[in-house]
């Protein structure tokens, strides 16, 4: 597929999502209010815990800010894939979309990218608002490092999202995977407290979750200004997860789609 064509489709999807979001006027305001309430809750939680608690050598509020902001961004992004397929199944648009000239994996990928773009704005708003609330900006953040970590984390989230979409196509229950990430294993990723406080077996499990490495690396780069050399191990792990998960998830999605076409379950939900 030519790049210009891909860009054209990307723009069409982004335009659709933007127009839909704008026309649901209240939804945008409610989302912003929710993010502000969350920020306030974490701010007062960190004050209640007190300045003596400095996980990984950083202020607890900044630790929470990066942890919850990036974790929510990634899980909401993963959820977007599931939501796109689920909604299309429920509305009956999945069958129609699957008969357009755009291959299904490209369509799901572009739709989720549009959702990620919207979430990125929310993440920047959340982090910016939080840092202003904290009253101090990081002294010397490694911005190129943050961008690389962010990019690798997005690739991993895309891969997990495609897996959730495949599960949704296959058994109409991709929400189980997102639930596992959102509720079942979040505490192992170091979102609210350092992974080092977990017992050893859980720490080993935590190392197998890519988001754990995303959060650790992002905190190092953004809050402590760690250079690429110090970030090396985490970057290699994130790159490995990306290289394995993305092709695997695309293959699984294609298999699930083929099976749904054979069994006539494309519009089941």
């Amino acid at each position: 597929m030519k790049l210009a064509g891909l860009l054209d489709k990307m723009l069409a999807i982004a335009r659709r999502d933007l127009l839909t979001a704008i026309r649901y006027r209240i939804g945008f305001l409610v989302g912003a209010a929710g993010a502000l309430a969350e920020l306030a809750a974490f701010y007062y939680l960190s004050r209640a815990v007190g300045p003596g608690f400095r996980p990984d050598g950083v202020e607890y509020f900044s630790f929470l800010l990066v942890g919850t902001g990036l974790y929510t961004f990634l899980v909401v992004g993963i959820n977007a894939f599931l939501h796109i397929v689920q909604e299309a199944q429920q509305t009956g648009s999945l069958e129609v979309l699957m008969t357009t000239s755009t291959p299904a994996p490209v369509l799901v990928f572009l739709s989720a990218m549009s959702a990620f773009a919207g979430n990125t704005l929310q993440l920047l708003f959340y982090l910016g608002g939080g840092l202003l609330l904290a009253g101090s900006l990081p002294a010397s953040p490694n911005i190129p490092g943050c961008i690389v970590i962010f990019g690798l984390s997005v690739v991993i989230a895309v891969a997990i999202g495609i897996l959730a979409a495949a599960l949704q196509l296959a058994i109409q229950k991709g929400s189980a995977l997102v639930w596992l990430l959102g509720s079942g294993i979040w505490f192992m990723t170091g979102t609210l407290f350092p992974v080092t406080t977990l017992p050893k077996p859980l720490r080993l499990l935590a190392d197998l979750i890519p988001i754990t490495h995303s959060l650790k690396a992002m905190r190092l780069a953004l809050l402590q200004g760690a250079g690429f050399f110090s970030l090396g191990t985490e970057l290699v792990i994130l790159a490995l997860f990306s290289c394995v998960l993305l092709p695997m998830s695309l293959w699984i999605f294609s298999c699930a789609l083929r099976r749904a076409r054979l069994e006539g379950t494309l519009s089941f939900y």
Partner: peptide
């Protein structure tokens, strides 16, 4: 929440 034109524009883009 898209108009007839916007819906067709979206599907036209997907259909090259």
């Amino acid at each position: 929440r898209l108009s007839a034109r916007e819906n067709l524009d979206f599907f036209a883009a997907l259909d090259d």
